[in-house]
Every structure is written in C-alpha cells, then in structure tokens.
Design a protein around this nucleic acid. Structure first.
Lengths: 152, 152
DNA sequence: CCCATGTGGTTGCATTAGAAATAGTTTCAC
DNA sequence: GTGAAACTATTTCTAATGCAACCACATGGG
C-alpha cells in the first residue's frame, strides 16, 4: 500500500499548480491584448457559442458562480460588447447577447485562444487530450459521488 | 482542423473546474477537522517530509508564493505546530521545523489526506494516475517553453 | 385576489491572493 | 574595509473571489 504522499507527488496538488500555470498564462494574454479577464472571456465564449441567454442559463452552462457571471456581464455591457433585452416570460431576468462589436471581438479572441492552446499543448497528442478530458470528467464524478454522501 | 472550441470542451477550462472541485473538497475537510487551510497544509507536508528548512527552500520546493509561505508559517508558529531556530550561516533566514505537536498533527493529517484522495480517485486506476502525472508534467513544460520565449 | 414560498439578479462584506515596497543581512568588487 | 548590489523575510496595499443577505418578480394554494 502506498504510504504518505509527498506534496510534489500528490495529484490534487499537481493538478492545482498545472491548471494554475495554464490559466494564468492564458489570462495574461487576454488582459494584455483584449483587456478581458477570465470570467469575461468565459461569458463571451458561451454567448458566442450559444447565442442569446439569461444569466441563469449561463450559470447552468458553466460552473461559474452567479455573481461572477453578473459582474462579467456588467463589465461587458459597459464596454458595449454585450446587450440586454427584456425577457417577456420573466420580468426578473434579461436576455443577453453579443453586440456587433462583441461578435467582432469574439472573432478575434477565439482564434487567439485556440492558437494559445495549441502552443501549450503542442506536445500532447490529440488522443492524449481526449484521454485527459475523460479522465478529468471521471475525477469530477468522483468528487460528486462524495458530495452526495456529505452534502455541504 | 478543429474550430473554435466550446467552453465546455476546452481543456484549460476543464482542468480549472476539476482541480477546483478536488481542491475545495479537500480544503473543506482540512478546515473542518484540523482548522488548516491549504497553504498551511502544504507547509506541514513539506516540513514533515523534508525536515528543517528555510522559507526560501520551501518556496523552491513548492510553486507557492513567498508571501503565502510566510503567512502559513506564521499561523503554524502561533499554533505551536512549527518552530523557528536561527540560521548560523545566514542571519536573514531561520530554520523551520515541526514541533512535537506539529508532528503529532502531521501523523493525523496525512492518513486523512490519503484516505480522502483514495475516495475521490477510487475509480481511477493507478496506471491512469501515473499517466495523468506525466501528462500534467508535460503540460507544465509546455507552459514553461512559452514563458521562455515571452518572459513576463 | 392575496399571501407564502421560490427564484433570478444585485449588492455588500469578508476572505484570499498577489504585487510592490521595506528592513535587515550577506556578498563581492574595489 | 567600504559601498553597491543581491537576497531573505516581512509588511502593506490592491485586486479578485465567493458567500450571504437582499430586492424584485413569479408561481401556486387558499
């Protein structure tokens, strides 16, 4: 049986520092070139992909906090990248979508994102990338299985 | 050629949310049972594993910020889990090590850590865990290769 | 219709993380 | 030996993150 793990051999730690390295590398690039932070980029990504949606729908589509979504939307709205329109079905929420300017930026941001990703993951074969995705998904399942037993 | 990635299919995003899920699950457990936060646990882990060392050595041994190390050490010292002793060779720094009480807590914390890890990763075969480690290491290499070209 | 309850969104507050500035110490060239 | 430059640790300041309370509207039961 494996004994007490060294920190530098402990998977949750390795995942944290690796994810952090990747994220902050990409985040620097976004801020530098587009003045976008990660939450704002994520909102643009879901709106660019999914079209018009409410904040709640964005929360469901991502694992982001509703406050993070709200703040990101507010910033993007002030920059004229996102527009709100009333929701007839529910007066509490609005439909949000990219403006023309927003779509123009989206068209710039996404290729850069993909290029950035390719540079970092050049040496990782596509098959390995797929394997990693399913592995990560299974790990999330493992966490969730425990959360079921120990609801916060 | 793959086109613009969906957020929910974008590896850096998946890594971030997965790592976050794992970390916060473990962090809750630490805080609940031992009143330790992640940085404090990490310091205990390296001291428990490596014996006496300076803060700078801890910074090198982990990827943690020097401020985070310093704050964690201060908290642990105030709780009597870690002790400082002067460094004859260099008056700027101290040697830090676990006290008896610190080692006692370490002996409790580490098995719990490992048990927690096993619960989350039950369904991930040891061979897959190893594969994941090397994959993460290669991804870090990829980030570093870019940082070389674009020094901050 | 009216009240109780639930939900989307917003704001405020506390916690955390990191960058920049500071103090004290060492090292090295001269 | 002295002064400049570099380094360890610490403090301070600012930005980011997440939680909890809150408001406005919606829904369902009486």
């Amino acid at each position: 049986m494996p004994n007490i793990p060294r920190l530098t051999d402990f998977l949750p730690y390795l995942m944290a520092i690796t994810s952090n390295a990747v994220s902050s590398r990409i985040a620097d690039e976004y801020r530098l070139r587009f003045g976008l932070r990660i939450p704002e980029w994520r909102v643009m990504a879901v709106l660019g992909d999914g079209g018009s949606m409410t904040q709640r729908e964005m929360v469901n589509a991502t694992v982001m906090d509703k406050v993070a979504i709200n703040r990101a939307c507010k910033v993007l709205e002030e920059r004229g990248l996102v527009a709100r329109s009333p929701n007839q079905r529910d007066g509490r929420s609005h439909h949000l979508e990219l403006t023309g300017e927003g779509r123009a930026l989206y068209a710039q941001v996404m290729p850069m994102t993909y290029e950035m990703f390719e540079r970092i993951f050049t040496r990782i074969e596509p098959s390995e990338q797929e394997a990693l995705k399913t592995l990560l998904s299974r790990i999330r399942d493992g966490v969730q299985a425990i959360d079921q037993g120990n609801p916060a």
